[in-house]
Design a protein around this nucleic acid. Structure first.
Lengths: 317, 317
DNA sequence: TATATTTGCATAACTAATTATGTAATTAAC
DNA sequence: GTTAATTACATAATTAGTTATGCAAATATA
C-alpha cells in the first residue's frame, strides 16, 4: 500500500517534496537532452532577463519568489558562464542592474524551443489527468495567502481542545484555584487591591450568597479558568461580569469565550437585562473577547478599582 | 501580473518548489505551536516507526521515498533525542533494526493529536478549492510513473523537429550527401563492399535510370538523411528499399520514419505489390523502424552483400 | 569450499536553497 | 546639515536533502 494513502494528508509536504524532486530531476535531464550548457536552477532568473532588458537583483527575487542571496549567486554563476553582464550604469550605486549578454540572447533563443516542448509535455499531462495540478497550485497559492496552513491548524486545534474543556459551577474545592488564577494575572499587569482580596478570599460570602455565580473551566479535570457573575446594587445593571482569569498554560483553547458564554447564559436565565464589566485597555485580547461577546463601551460609573480604565455593558436582547 | 501566469507551465518545477516551501515552513511553525521538540523532517520516518514495531533503515527509505543515507541520519538524530533505539537483535548483522523507545511512544501520542488537526486543516483546504491538490499529486505520480516528463518532452521534441524536416526528391546537388551519409554508417558498423560503390558513385545510372527513386531528408535545408527505392528484376518483388542513411547529428527527429514512408508511398503510387529490403540484426533501431513500417522477415533470396543477415518484405494491401 | 557478487549501512562530499550578518549608498527626520 | 533609518547587495553560515564511496556481512557461483 502506498505510503501516502496510509499516512493521510498530514504528509502533504512530503508528497509535494517528492513530486518537486521528480520534476526537477527530469528537468536536469531535459537540459542535457538539448545540449545547452545551462543549469536548471538558473531558469526563473534567466527567464526574467529574457523578458526585461535590464533589471536589478532584488526586483528579480521579488518577482520569482526566491531570496535575494539566491538570485545574487545565480547571477554570479551566469556571469561566469558569459550569459549575463552586471553593474550596468544606474544612478543608484547600490543597485546591481543586470542584463543578458549577446551570448545570453543566443542561448535564450535555443532555450525557447525547449520551453515550447516542455510546455507541450506538461499540457499533455494536464489533458490526460482528471485533476489539474497546475490549476490546483494556483488556487492553493491564493487560498494559503488568504489564510495560511498555520492559521488553519491553529483554528482546528482550538476547536478540538475546546471540546475537552468543561465549564462547571463553582464548588469549594476550586476555592484555591479561583484565587490563584486571578492573583496570577492581576499581579502580572497590576497590583492587587483591597477589593480583590475581599472577593477572592470569600467568594461564598461576597458573590454566591448575594445571588451571583462562579464558573470554572476544567481542562482534563484541572481548573484552568474562572469567571464570576456578581449581583449588582444598581438601577441600570443586574450583574457584573468579573474575576475572569485563564491560565497562560491553557491559552488558545477558547476558554475565555466558553466562560464568557456561560456567564451570559446564566445571566439570561436569571432574567437579566444588562451586564456590566470593568477592565483595562492594555488587556487587548480581553477587550477583544468582550467585544465578541457583544459588550459595548460605556462610561460614567464609579469603580473601586484603580486599574479600571474602561467600562462595558452587554444589553440582553 | 503573477510570474507563473507569465512564464507558463515550463515553470511547474519552480511553482511546486515554492508551494513545498510554503507548506514545510508552516509545518515547522506548527511543531512549535504544539510545544513538542520534534524536527519536521523526522516526520515520515517517525510515522513509519509508529506503524511498524521494528523496521530497518532501508525498509523505511523505500517506503517513504527518501534515500537511505537520509533515513540513516534522521534515525541517528532521533536516537540522540531519545525517541528511537537502534541495533535491535537480528540474525543479519548488517541490518540496523530500529524501534521507538518508550519516550518515543509518548511523543507519538502527542503528535497524533497534532496530525489530526493538520489533516483537518488540509481537508478544509481541499473542500474550499475546486482543484484537489492531493488528488492531483496522486494522479500525477501515477502518470509520471507510466511515462516520465523526460519521455514526454523527448516525444514533443521529435514531433516539433520532424515538422522542420522536408523530404524531397533527389537532385544532382545531393550526390555527395547521398554517398557521404551512407559511407558514414556503413563504415562504422561494417566494411564498404563493391556493390556499395556501384550504387553510391552512380545513382543516376544504377538507380534512377532503371526506374528507381531517391529521397533526401532536409533539416533546415541541410541534407541529413537519404533513402533509395531500387527497381528489382525479380518475379516476387517490384522494388527494394536500400541505402537508407540518417546522420547521427539528426537522430531523434523521426527522419527514418519520414523517409521510409516516402519510399513506401512512392512504391504504392507506382503500383508496387511488394517491397524488399536487406539489413543486419545488429542495427536494432533500423529493424525496429522496418517493423513499424510494416515489413516482415522473409528468407531465401540471394544477396550480393556480406553484411546482410536479415531480409524483409512489405506486402502492400 | 573458495571466490565473486550483492546487500545494508555509515560516512563523506556535494547541492540548492535558506536565514543571518555586515557594509556602503540612499532617504528620512530632527 | 547631521544623524538615524532604510535599502540593495554580497558574503557567511546553516539546512535538508542528494549522490558517491567504502566496508562488513550475507548470498550466489564456480
Amino acid at each position: 500500500m502506498n505510503f501516502f494513502d496510509k499516512v493521510g494528508k498530514v504528509a502533504l509536504g512530503s508528497r509535494l517534496r517528492l513530486m518537486t524532486a521528480a520534476i526537477t530531476d527530469d528537468a536536469a535531464k531535459i537540459y542535457e537532452l538539448y545540449g545547452i550548457s545551462f543549469m536548471p536552477k538558473w531558469f526563473p532568473v534567466f527567464y526574467m532577463l529574457t523578458e526585461e532588458r535590464e533589471i536589478t537583483i532584488t526586483e528579480i527575487a521579488n518577482e520569482i519568489g526566491h531570496s535575494q542571496p539566491s538570485v545574487s549567486k545565480i547571477i554570479q554563476e551566469m556571469t561566469t558562464a558569459g550569459l549575463v553582464q552586471e553593474n550596468l550604469k544606474t544612478t543608484d550605486k547600490r543597485r546591481n542592474s543586470v542584463a543578458l549578454t549577446s551570448q545570453g540572447i543566443v542561448v535564450s533563443k535555443e532555450l525557447k524551443l525547449q520551453w515550447v516542448d516542455v510546455e507541450a509535455a506538461v499540457e499533455s499531462l494536464i489533458t490526460e489527468s482528471n485533476h489539474n495540478l497546475w490549476a490546483a497550485l494556483e488556487e492553493w497559492e491564493f487560498l494559503l495567502e488568504q489564510k495560511s496552513l498555520l492559521k488553519r491548524v491553529i483554528e482546528n486545534k482550538k476547536i478540538r481542545e475546546s471540546q475537552d474543556v468543561q465549564i462547571v459551577a463553582f464548588e469549594p474545592k476550586y476555592l484555591d484555584a479561583f484565587k490563584a488564577l486571578n492573583v496570577e494575572w492581576i499581579s502580572t499587569y497590576f497590583e492587587m487591591e483591597a477589593a480583590d482580596y475581599k472577593a477572592l478570599d470569600n467568594p461564598q460570602e461576597y458573590i454566591l450568597d448575594k445571588g451571583g455565580k462562579i464558573f470554572v473551566a476544567l481542562y482534563h479535570d484541572e481548573p484552568v479558568g474562572v469567571c464570576a457573575l456578581i449581583k449588582m446594587k444598581d438601577e441600570n445593571y443586574d450583574f457584573e461580569m468579573a474575576k475572569m482569569a485563564v491560565s497562560p498554560k491553557a491559552q488558545g483553547k477558547n476558554i475565555g469565550w466558553l466562560l464568557g458564554q456561560a456567564i451570559v447564559n446564566s445571566a439570561k436565565e436569571q432574567g437579566a437585562k444588562k451586564i456590566y464589566l470593568e477592565s483595562n485597555t492594555i488587556l487587548k485580547p480581553a477587550i477583544n473577547l468582550y467585544h465578541k461577546l457583544g459588550f459595548q463601551k460605556v462610561s460614567g460609573l464609579a469603580t473601586p478599582y484603580k486599574r479600571c480604565n474602561i467600562q462595558m455593558e452587554l444589553v440582553i436582547a
